[in-house]
Design a protein around this nucleic acid. Structure first.
Lengths: 133, 133
DNA sequence: AAGTAAATTAGGAATGATTCTTGATTTTGA
DNA sequence: TCAAAATCAAGAATCATTCCTAATTTACTT
């Protein structure tokens, strides 16, 4: 019903996100985009991230740490989240997750599977290196 | 450091949860336990659910819908969440998820995997039955 | 059974991420 | 240039969850 119009703010948000591989949160996007739009509001950032995600231009990640993260890479891949520092990075799971990903479109116990979520958590290489020695 | 003492409230919370297979939220537990403890506070419910989860007596489910759910079944299994009605039910994924579950304890790209999260979403049988016909 | 230190509770305030509301500003097509 | 529709900034509102404090329970010890 509602046509999507261009906005400079949305372009800046998309541009910033595309330049990152660290899966920023809405607040990280907000802080970054403020250098270009000092008066942009957090609500605008949230609304545009939601819109971009709806349109499939970016992906919204819910990794259970209470904050949504956003990913410019919408190709099918998985993530690893460090329980210690919170860093999120891409994970090449390949065959490990292929099985569960392949359930989309199938029926299980009468329910129609539309998609799946799979990710790993633990301690990242950086945090491991700082433990004790 | 702090010894865990018995509390009637915690026992009631555990007892209620054990009687359920629908993965209640903290608020659902709160409402239910109030019939036995009319003055119990929501904070008490949250604190005890967290304590029970920490002790491994129950499992905390984070299925990305913004609310934590709790499961008396701590054996390894997976879940399906209906995008329409929000219902959560057990899913017998077996071999489908075995691969990703098996990553625990392994190293990937230098990171130590402690665990994984995997679940499916879609439309449950009940909601499918009510669509149109 | 009384005494007491430590854990737990009720109640409510505080937090934090996200969404909503409103009047002003931009965008877009005619 | 005009006007309708979408978007914006600013801040209030929401909602799940956590934190704080004084009063109550629990679990020893005698």
């Amino acid at each position: 019903m509602s046509a999507v119009k261009y906005s400079r703010q949305r372009e800046a948000i998309k541009r910033f996100l595309t330049s990152r591989r660290d899966h920023p949160t809405a607040d990280m996007v907000y802080c970054a985009v403020r250098s270009e739009f000092p008066h942009i509001s957090l609500g605008t950032v949230y609304r545009n991230l939601a819109l971009l995600a709806e349109q499939g231009e970016i992906a919204r990640l819910r990794l259970g740490d209470g904050v949504d993260r956003f990913d410019p890479d919408v190709s099918p891949h998985h993530h690893f989240i460090c329980s210690q520092c919170g860093a999120v990075r891409d994970l090449a799971l390949g065959q490990y997750a292929a099985a569960i990903d392949g359930l989309s479109g199938k029926r299980i116990d009468g329910s129609l599977v539309r998609g799946s979520v799979a990710y790993c958590y633990g301690i990242c290489a950086e945090c491991l290196g700082q433990e004790k020695g």
